[in-house]
Write a protein that binds this DNA or RNA. Structure first.
Lengths: 227, 227
DNA sequence: TTCATTTTTTGATAAAAGTCAAAATATGGC
DNA sequence: GCCATATTTTGACTTTTATCAAAAAATGAA
């Protein structure tokens, strides 16, 4: 394994601290290397996404703007009533955003696995208290940035500017699809649709959470699965 | 009535051709004035949205890029299988985007009244055949632009660049809300939610279409309304 | 590994929403 | 304004999904 791990290789990132440094000539600790790996994964992500280069100066700006944060399983990133201050890039792990109604029933609005973004867009854009909770479903490592700092990077770094344009389009496409699924399909069709489009969710999230994401009860999902 | 009509004053726009020119000294036809009104409403829209100016040169670029199109009631703008080539600004009238499944059941993904945008984002971004129909619910006037031309304007006109950034955020906020509504509320709650957030829809769209937008049957909506 | 805790499954029943058919009402194109 | 056409309402009945309770299975922390 090289010091530079890929985004999708979760084990590579999380186990780095347990392995000896590959280069014996290095004076740097494995913790420092792990930190470098994490930022490198973000640089790779932007380069791959945009096909644009990032100068060492750009990388320094990005490194300073994105703050690394570790979340334990079930730890909250945002709780209902908080103003969501950051947009988060998931380096490894899994997050969810969900609401809880008067009866205590949860509704999962979105999941984010490694290489995806998570925020309460409503709260972060309008700087109003969130109606949602965001928490870590697994032990996770994330890179956070405030909207103001992201805006500043956008103005300075062409790759970030391009990334935001491309990402915005992708968001429009995926949300249009999700709305269509929610209003036009019954429980069984929504389940089949999720199986096809996000089989990985079934490996990473509990049936309870999947059911909530589909807008059905866990008992109903269990019965659909029996067929 | 002045030559320059407002966006929301639908009658003002549609009746222009039936009225004598206000300025008797003008050599321009009422049809030409109507055309000017339409583009001016778009310029006003961008200026209001972004609080940035548009130079006469900017206005010329925008005028050349956005093509005016009139749609009769029930006329298709996009049919399933077409590649959606344009992003549309609704000057007056009302459009909807909807799918039709194997059984002929319609599902309305979105409505657009005057001052709103309409496109099949999935098709227009990926240039793949659309899974939806877009048609005019009322006689409508729209301004169309291709994604490539919009991209070119974005690079040349700061107000357009800023508009796209702001609009993207709004889309993220509104779609997150719609997804939450769809998965976490029952039929009655979704109906109440729409009454609060889009009372104007009930004035402009049939119960059939509203029901389809809410993901319920017209009979169910009729029964909810009786309460 | 054990064991307390959480998650999933199963069964019985209730509530919500859909289906089909027909009548009442509204509408828009001439 | 008329009238064919489309839309909305109503009723009887079916299907789907939710609810509640309890058992079975899985999971994770010590």
């Amino acid at each position: 394994m090289t010091a530079r791990s890929t985004l999708n290789d979760q084990a590579a990132v999380t186990e780095t601290t347990e392995l000896p440094a590959v280069k014996s000539s290095s004076f740097r600790s494995t913790a420092e290397e792990h930190r470098d790996d994490i930022y490198n994964s973000l640089f790779d992500y932007f380069r791959n996404y945009t096909k644009l280069p990032l100068s060492p100066f750009d990388q320094r700006l990005i490194r300073d703007a994105f703050k690394l944060k570790k979340l334990r399983r079930r730890q909250f990133l945002v709780q209902e009533g908080d103003v969501c201050k950051y947009i988060c890039f998931v380096v490894c792990g899994a997050l969810r955003i969900y609401s809880v109604n008067e009866r205590g029933q949860e509704a999962v609005v979105a999941f984010a696995l490694e290489g995806k973004w998570m925020s309460d867009w409503e709260s972060v854009v309008t700087q109003t208290p969130s109606r949602y909770h965001i928490d870590a479903v697994e032990h996770s490592e994330i890179l956070q940035i405030s909207p103001a700092e992201l805006h500043a990077l956008e103005a300075k770094i062409p790759a970030i500017d391009e990334f935001l344009r491309l990402e915005q389009r992708l968001v429009a496409v995926t949300t249009q699809k999700r709305i269509h699924t929610a209003i036009s399909m019954n429980a069984e069709e929504r389940y089949q649709d999720l199986l096809e489009n996000h089989p990985e969710y079934f490996q990473r999230f509990s049936q309870n959470m999947i059911a909530s994401y589909l807008g059905i009860k866990p008992e109903t999902l269990s019965r659909l699965r029996k067929r």
